[in-house]
Design a protein around this nucleic acid. Sequence first.
RNA 1: GGUCCCGUAGCUCAGUUGGAUAGAGCAACAGAUUUCUAAUCUGUCGGUCUUUGGUUCGAGUCCAAACGGGAUCACCA
Length: 592
Amino acid sequence: MQLEAIIQEHIQNALKEIYNVEENQIALQPTKKDFEGFYTFVTFPYTKSLRKPPVEIGNAIGQYLLEKSGIVSSFNVVQGFLNLSIADEAWVKALNELALDADFGFWPANGKSVMVEFSSPNTNKPLHLGHLRNNFLGDSVSRILKASGYEVVKACLVNDRGIHICKSMLAYAKLGEGETPQSSGIKGDHLIGKYYVLFDKEYKRQIEALVAEGISKEEAEKKAPWMIEAQELLRKWEQGDSETVALWKQMNEWVYAGFNDTYQKIGVSFDKTYYESNTYLLGKDVVEEGLEKGVFFRKDDNSVWIDLTAEGLDQKLVLRGDGTSVYMTQDLGTTDLKFQDFHNDKSIWVVGNEQDYHFQVLFAILKRLGRTYAEGCHHLSYGMVDLPTGKMKSREGTVVDADDLIQEMASTAETRTRELGKIEDFNSEEAQQLYHTLALGALKYFLLKVDPKKRMLFNPEESVDFQGHTGPFIQYTYVRIRSVMRKADQQNIELVKAASVVSLAKIEQEIIFHLADFPSKVADAARDYSPALISQYVYELAKLYNHLWAEVSVLNEPEEALKYFRILLSKAVGDTIKKSLDLMGIGVPERM
RNA sequence: GGUCCCGUAGCUCAGUUGGAUAGAGCAACAGAUUUCUAAUCUGUCGGUCUUUGGUUCGAGUCCAAACGGGAUCACCA
C-alpha cells in the first residue's frame, strides 16, 4: 500500500475518533521545501465545521498519527499546515515494494479501449517539424493510455487524394521528364514535395501574369491555366481515368516509401491505416439519416445543412448542392467506420488547433445524431510550431524538414560525443545507434515537454540542446545508473530487499517520495492526454538522482546495509527513468 | 465583429486542480573532478504572475471586463 494512502486513511480515522467527522476525501500535498516534512495536510477547510482553531486541529491529528499510524515519525504545525515526516523504516519498505515490482507505475487493464488517430499526412509533401509534434504527441499519448490500462488502437488517416495531390502530379507530368527517386537519388516524399513547390511557383507566376493583364487577383487564382488543369486532373482521377490513376499510384508508392523510412526512424507505427481515397465517398448515408431524423435540413439549392446555433455555433454545410462531399461529410463517414471497425470506448484525434472549430461541430453533430460513442470523442488540440522567421509553409519551402532536422541533431550528438571521448571502443554501428538515440531523445523531449495546447517557438540555433532540461540530460542520468549496476553485477551483488536498519539522508527520502508518485503521474498524464506531465516528472527524478550522486557514493559506501539500499534505490530510479522515457517514445543508451 | 486558445524572470517553460516566502533550464558570473561517467553538481544574479475589479480565511490558479498575441468563422482538406 502506498504511503500516501496509508496516511490518508489514518487522517480519516483521526477525524472520526477525535471530532466524530466522516470525511472520505483527504487531500494531501507535498510539503514545501522550506518546511520540515513530506506530506502536508491543510486544516483550514475544517476550522468552520469543527469550530476549532487550525493549529489545534493540526496538533490533535499530528499527535494521533504519531501514536497510531506507525509510519509518521514526527510532525510540525505552521498556521493551518500539518507537516508530516515519515520514518526511515517506512521509506525503505516503500522502496522495497516498488523497486522489485516490474510493473510498478503501470495500471492493470481497465477493460476499455481507445483509438488514437494521429500523423495523418498529406501525400504531396514530406514531413516537417509541425508533423513531428503531431507524431510524437500521438505516439506518446498512445503509450501513456496503454500504461494506464486502456487497450489502444493507433490509427492513421492518409490524406491521399484531392487537389493538392493533383498539383504535384501536374507539375511532375509537365516538368518531371521521367525523374524517379532512383534516378535522382532523392527520397520519394521529398521528390513529390519538390514538384509541389514547383507547381506553386509556376501557379504564382501565372496569377501575376493575369493580374498584369488587368484581371482581379481572386479571378486570376481561379483562371490560372495550371489550376484549371489540376482541377481537370482531379476530375479524371475521380472518374478512374487509367492514365491518371497510374500516375497517382506511382507517386504514392514513392511517397509511402519515403514516409515509411521516416516513421521507422522516429519509431512511430500504426495498428490501422485508413486511406482517404477509400473513405472520401463515405458519409452520404449519414446525411440521409440526418435528414430523416430532422437533424439536417435542405436548402433551396439542394445543399444540406445543420443549424447549431443552439450550441453557440453556426449553421454548417454537410453536403453540397450537387451532392458531393465536403470535409465534414467525410469525417462523419470515417468516424462511423472507425467505430464499426473497433467499437472503441474513446476516440482521440491528434490534430492542430486550427481545426478546433471543425471538431466542435463534428462532435455536436454526432451528439445530435444520437451516436452512442459521441461522449468518448476528444480532440487533442495542439499549437503550431513557429520559426523565428514566421510560419512554416510547405508550398513556399519555408519549413524545417523532419529528415534534415533529425540528421542535423544526430551529427550534433556525434560531435559532442567525440569531444567527450567516452565511447572510443564502440564500433561504427554502435556509435551511429547512440547518436540516433540521443538525437531523437533531444528532439522528442523538446517537443513533448511543452503543454500541447501552447504554440511553441522553434529556434534552430539554440532551441534543441543537450544540456539542462533536455532528453540527453535524462538519458545521461540513466547511463550513470547503468554504470553502477554493471559494476555491482561484476561484484556479484544481488538485488535484494533493503534492510530497514539504515538511516537515510534527506535526498534519499526525497527520491523514494518522488518514485512513489509515479503511478499517479501516469494516471494524470492519461487523464489529461499530456506527455508534458511525464516529462516534468522524469526530469525532476533525474535531477534528484544527480543530486544524490554528488552527495554520496553508491558502491563505495562502507556501511553494507546502506550500500545495498543505494543500489536498490539506483535500480528503481533507473527503471523508472526508462519507463518514463519509454512513455514519451524515447529510448535509453547503456553508455554515452 | 462572433467564437476558441494563450499571456509567469532577458529567453524557453513548470507551477500537482484555491494553500505557506511563485520554481526550473538557458544566458551571465563565481566555484567543485586523487572517488561509481563533469552531457554533472553547488552558489550568485534575475519577478508589478499583462491590467483592473470580484468571489474568501487564502487567488499565478476560479469569475467578469479591458489590453496584447494567435487560430477560426469556405460549397478547401
